[in-house]
Design a protein around this nucleic acid. Structure first.
Lengths: 199, 199
DNA sequence: TCCATAACGAAACGTATCGTTTCGATTGGA
DNA sequence: TCCAATCGAAACGATACGTTTCGTTATGGA
């Protein structure tokens, strides 16, 4: 039983308004639980215990588990930077390698996997993943594609299809926990994603 | 409460051996629960009630939820046939369209999504998905790639990378419940998956 | 200055799930 | 004949969910 590692700091009420320290403590606890136990151990009860916070406090800040997961992911400062070397394939390969490092070196990979799993449980979580989380996360990649369109490398009407291939490639390897094994395939795969349409 | 829709057939013991009728009833019940409620409602208790079977009987046949899920998927007669028109892109496009129909028209899409979600919960489920379920399901697609290698369309050392792109493309659309919206992108995406490596 | 207001953590609620165990009844094979 | 293994039913203890209640705390408006 190491659920009580953090002796509860016992943040008392600061009056008739929500305590930001509670929110921060809950986010940190959620990140820690995900990092140490993965999605299997990620329960509201566990986060509550770890944060020394009451469950009502959690539900006061987040509607459900999925929303908490999304914010945990977002709180992890996205160190994934979009490169711009001039070729879409190289840009994507650099970006993807950085993303996979990010997934491997932070709790974010596990958070992401938890989010996808939660989305299969709960329709609201799926909607949040598809319509809110994903568009935000794909912003940088979309910019790379847009630049390639501007350079005439690919057609504008091909962006969504290429994006589907790109996103799926990432999802497959992270969801099957094969980021290390699949790493070598990144450059060639990105060359295909960026390749001119044959025919 | 429609959990007791099926009035329990009450299959008594048939002696000192397991009753195949129980296995069949459990599989059918599992399929029905998945079809009607999705992964959220897919609990051992629910399947047990629906099948009119005791939970110990379920655990006598299957080690855990993931194994039951895998067999539910396998029991759905795979109507996805591999085509062979002579070109990898066309073969993949035909196969993928059939697979997506299969996912849409049977409980198999939901079963698959449940399996992926379960794999994020349970390490054993992930191992079963990656090392047992996936290789079996990818057999036909691998044959298409192998034929393309034999024809000289693609290199043998590119198969795994292309397979990663192919599988991920499918996963992304089914896991985000966008099979209908993504359908139009199949042919072009498969042309890329089958395209010669540029550079 | 006073006090209604709202958040706080703790605890317990009822419901649900898991995987296991116990039970009496059933039936084939040794 | 009787042992053995299965059957469905029921209950177990543990855990999780999301909610409610409780006594405490301190702010901010009257």
């Amino acid at each position: 039983m190491n659920a009580t590692d953090r002796s509860a700091p016992r943040r008392a009420s600061i009056g008739a308004r929500r305590n930001p320290a509670s929110q921060a403590a809950i986010l940190a606890a959620a990140r820690a639980v995900l990092a140490e136990e993965g999605y299997a151990g990620f329960s509201i009860d566990a986060v509550s215990r770890r944060a020394g916070a009451g469950k009502p406090t959690i539900y006061r800040w987040w509607k459900n588990k999925a929303e908490l997961l999304i914010e945990v992911y977002a709180a992890e400062k996205a160190m994934v930077k979009a490169a711009a070397t001039g070729g879409l394939a190289d840009d994507l390969a650099l970006y993807t390698a950085a993303l996979w490092d990010f997934w491997r070196d932070t709790p974010s990979g596990r958070t992401f996997r938890a989010l996808v799993a939660e989305a299969q449980n709960d329709a609201a979580a799926l909607a949040a993943l598809r319509d809110k989380f994903l568009p935000e996360r794909l912003c940088d990649v979309r910019a790379l594609f847009a630049a390639a369109v501007a350079r005439g490398e690919i057609g504008l009407d091909e962006v969504e299809m290429r994006l589907g291939l790109y996103v799926g490639f990432n999802w497959y390897y992270v969801l099957t926990d094969q980021l290390d094994a699949g790493r070598a395939a990144i450059p060639a795969a990105m060359r295909l994603v960026a390749a001119p349409l044959p025919g």
